[in-house]
Each structure stands twice: as C-alpha cells, then as structure tokens.
Simulated assay, not measured.
Amino acid sequence: MTWTLLVLTIGVYLVEVLAGGSQNSNTLMTMGAMTNVSIQTGDWWRLITPIFLHLSVFHIFMNGFTLLYVGQILEPMIGHWRFLTIYLLSGITGNLASFAFGSDNTISVGASTSIFGLFAAFLALGFIYRENRFMTEIGKSFLGLIVVNLLLDLLMPSINIWGHLGGALGGLFLGYTLGLPGIQRPKMIFRILSLVVLVVISYFMYTKGMIVYG
C-alpha cells in the first residue's frame, strides 16, 4: 500500500502540472482541493481528494519521502489494509478539523493530514504494547516528530495546523482501535469505545463547520 499510495500521489501531481499547474487555484479546485465553502455546499468528497493533491515539487517530495519512510516500518507491522485505513481516515479527520476550525477561504491540499495520522498510530501502538521496548521507543520517537512539526506549524502561518492536529487525532484513535494483527489487545470493548469516540469527534467537527454555513 505504501508504494501504491506513493505512485498514485505522484501520478496525480503530474496530472495537476499538465492540467494547468499545481499552484493554479482553478486546477486544484477542479481536481478536488478543499475549501470550507465547498464542503458546506455539498462537496463532501473533497474531504478525501485533497490527500492526493500537492502544491509543489518540494511539497510532494517531503510528504512522499515521509510516507515511504514511515510506511516501510508501519505497514509490515500492522498489515496492508490497516495501514490504508489509518492513512485515509486520518486524512479525512484532518480535513474535518480544518473544516471546523480553519480559515474559510484557504485551499487545503496535501497528504500531511494522513502523515500525522501515521505518526500518531505509532504513538498508540507504543502505549498499547508498552512492555515491548521497541514499540515504546518508536512511539516516543514519533511523539517527538509530532511535537516538533506542530511547533514548526506555529512558526509558519501558511501551514494548516488544524489539519495536522486532526490527522494526529484520527491516527491515535485508529491505532488504538486496530492494534496489531493476531494479538488480542486491546480488549474489544476498548477498541469499540475508541472508534465510537472518533466518530463522535468527527461528527462534531463536521456539524461545527456546517453551522457556520447555516
């Protein structure tokens, strides 16, 4: 899934460039970029499509490199479908946070919402399997990455910190919900509760964004 997502993202970027430019707002909106108004008027699918859009070679390189690095560690641990689920749903929760708390006129694109979700999934696994030294240490490492990147976000107003926070929140709860394959931890009741909490938070963010429009 890591390589499939990477190839797909690069392919979409090439289409952006050929269709009018990756920084052309009309091209971005045509291909699925998100603004708050677009979601408020019914384009709910724009909560998903921005994950695969990028603004520049540097933008896609940073996200693509991070996806490859994290994916080569996380995907073999949790399996293909768990990895894909965390990647996509974290991207959606990140975009929902941006929708609820971000600027109305900002065009949102990029896989960083999903990347933060992958970071936070490591954090969840490190907590669940904290008797495992490797899992604990890698969880701490990715917690550090989350903190450093959020601090950098505060220094760069052009970066959507709400999307990153929402993506991390999604990855944290999804990591706890899915766990590692073949290991009966955490208990099913806690997995269900974790998923329910994430759904409730996501619904709250969606309704908060829609209230502004209503």
Rank of each mutant, 00 (worst) to 15 (best):
W3M: 13
T4Y: 15
V7M: 14
V12W: 02
V15G: 06
E16H: 11
E16K: 01
E16W: 04
V17K: 13
G20Q: 10
Q23V: 02
Q23F: 07
N24V: 03
L28Q: 13
M31V: 05
G32A: 06
M34D: 04
T35Y: 07
S38Q: 01
S38I: 11
I39S: 09
Q40H: 12
G42F: 00
L47G: 00
I48K: 10
T49W: 08
F52H: 03
L53W: 01
L55R: 14
H59L: 02
H59T: 10
F61M: 12
F61G: 13
N63M: 07
G64D: 10
T66H: 05
L68V: 00
Q72V: 01
Q72G: 00
E75N: 08
H80D: 15
L88D: 03
L89F: 13
L89R: 11
G94R: 00
N95M: 07
N95G: 06
L96T: 00
G102T: 03
G110A: 00
S112A: 04
S114P: 07
F116P: 08
F116Q: 14
F116C: 13
L118A: 04
F119T: 02
A121V: 04
F122T: 04
G126D: 04
G126M: 01
G126S: 10
I128N: 06
Y129F: 14
R130V: 09
N132G: 02
V147A: 15
V147K: 03
N149T: 08
L151W: 05
D153C: 15
L154F: 12
P157K: 04
S158F: 15
I159M: 09
I161R: 03
I161Y: 03
G167Y: 03
A168S: 02
G171N: 06
G171Q: 08
Y176E: 02
T177H: 12
T177W: 14
L178E: 04
R185W: 15
R185L: 12
P186S: 11
K187D: 08
M188A: 06
I189T: 11
R191L: 05
L193G: 14
S194W: 11
V199E: 07
S202H: 08
Y203A: 11
Y203N: 10
M205V: 01
M205A: 07
M205P: 00
T207W: 02
I211C: 00
V212Y: 08
V212R: 13
G214T: 07
G214H: 15
